[in-house]
Nucleic acid binder design. Sequence first.
DNA 1: GTCTATACAAAGATAGAC
DNA 2: GTCTATCTTTGTATAGAC
Lengths: 195, 195
Amino acid sequence: MEVSRTAETIMDMAEMLIQTRGYNSFSYKDISEAIGIRNASIHHHFPSKTDLGVAVVKRYTLRFGQELHRLASDDSLPTMTVFERYLDPYRMLSDSQQRVCLCGSLAGEFLALPEEMRDQVNAFFAEHQSWLKAIFERALQTGEFDLPETPAKTAKLVLAALQGALLIQRSMGDIEEFDDVVASVKAMLTRNGSA
Amino acid sequence: MEVSRTAETIMDMAEMLIQTRGYNSFSYKDISEAIGIRNASIHHHFPSKTDLGVAVVKRYTLRFGQELHRLASDDSLPTMTVFERYLDPYRMLSDSQQRVCLCGSLAGEFLALPEEMRDQVNAFFAEHQSWLKAIFERALQTGEFDLPETPAKTAKLVLAALQGALLIQRSMGDIEEFDDVVASVKAMLTRNGSA
DNA sequence: GTCTATACAAAGATAGAC
DNA sequence: GTCTATCTTTGTATAGAC
């Protein structure tokens, strides 16, 4: 999917705006003023706002997905290290104090999204749950982790906690929220000091 | 704070619309059409949309807060029972398949909210974290629970997980998401079979 | 307290010149 | 590919009659 440099810049800005304000709380004007281009020019690259929204979520999910695949394919690393690397993108969001996960933000206005975007958000969460489940299964077999529940249910808990932590951290202005949740998650995963 | 029956009906509808679509994704028209009243009549009760939004969040937080206080003051109940009753309102949202927590929804568009509303959302999360911390401390002393981390950090994890679970459940259309997360949370809290 | 009418701004989108 | 100009709809809000 080849796109021009301008289209990439537009998507970068749209991604940031969705992460900070939400899909229905930003306008083409926000983008045009931020990157010095006219409203109509954005429509040239993305005819409708839905087109832009779908492109941004697809790119985000793809980018994240490639990282997931890269991480899971390295068998030499301890599972806890793999998990910590998985957390890196979240931690960058946490450090920003402004952004949350793109799909976490979109989930709050899910029923007000165009159908195509809803499908993409759904796919993002499904992919992450599935990935977490897989590494938890592996760590359970090797004895690295000691889970409170099945890998599937534990994966659901962890994903929900990470997404919720970013949202709550920003709402409370509590810079330790995310790290505290991660500390609890890690302790939960290695209850017997197994790691 | 005395309010007319009409004002209550307007707030009921606004609450539902925020929970399903988000604050910036509903309009006075949505309310006027749903409850059979004119746009201008809503402005009579709530001059600005900010006034309406603030009133809705305040009412929601107050309603929830009274329930928290009632629950925590009953010393005769096992802590797990208290925790399960705390989950009841969340489970109603989970069953709805449409609504999420009002503040969980607002958290996604936090930076696009009027300042007064942001303060209220912050207060809601702070109150719930504090309440969970208190009952976890109690259960730790009585030996009912066995926490992975400090009561404060565990409380942060639990609140984040519940909020995240509702958002993800709706996005994925997975009716078991919330129950699965709760099952993991309960198992985590009673790791030694302490309950 | 509710209504009709209307003002005003913002947002998404299109036409057509350059 | 970007621009100016414009259209249309929607959304918040107000004035004033009933």
